[in-house]
Simulated assay, not measured.
Amino acid sequence: MDTLFDLPEPETPEQAVIAHYRLSDDQYGSPAEREAIYDAERAMTSAVQEAGVGEVDGNEFGVGEAVLYAYGANATTLFKVMEATLRSLPFRPAYVVLRNESREAESRVDL
Rank of each mutant, 00 (worst) to 15 (best):
M1H: 13
D2T: 08
T3E: 11
L4G: 12
L4R: 15
L4I: 07
D6V: 11
E9M: 14
P10T: 05
E11A: 13
P13Y: 12
Q15C: 08
I18Y: 10
A19N: 06
H20Y: 15
S24K: 05
S24C: 09
Q27A: 09
G29H: 01
G29I: 03
P31R: 13
A32P: 02
A32D: 15
A32N: 14
A32E: 15
R34D: 07
E35V: 06
Y38Q: 14
A40D: 02
A40M: 03
A40I: 01
M44W: 03
T45F: 07
T45V: 04
A51I: 03
V53H: 03
V53M: 06
V53T: 09
V56R: 01
E60P: 04
G62V: 10
E65C: 07
E65W: 05
L68R: 03
Y69T: 07
A70E: 02
A70R: 00
A70C: 06
A70H: 02
A70N: 05
G72D: 01
N74P: 00
A75K: 02
A75L: 08
A75H: 03
T77P: 01
K80N: 14
M82C: 05
M82A: 02
E83A: 13
E83G: 04
E83Q: 10
L86Y: 00
R87N: 05
L89T: 11
F91H: 12
F91Y: 15
R92Q: 11
A94T: 11
Y95E: 11
Y95D: 09
Y95M: 11
V97A: 02
N100W: 14
N100F: 12
E101M: 11
E101T: 13
E101Q: 09
S102T: 15
E104S: 06
E106S: 03
E106F: 08
S107F: 01
L111T: 05
L111F: 15
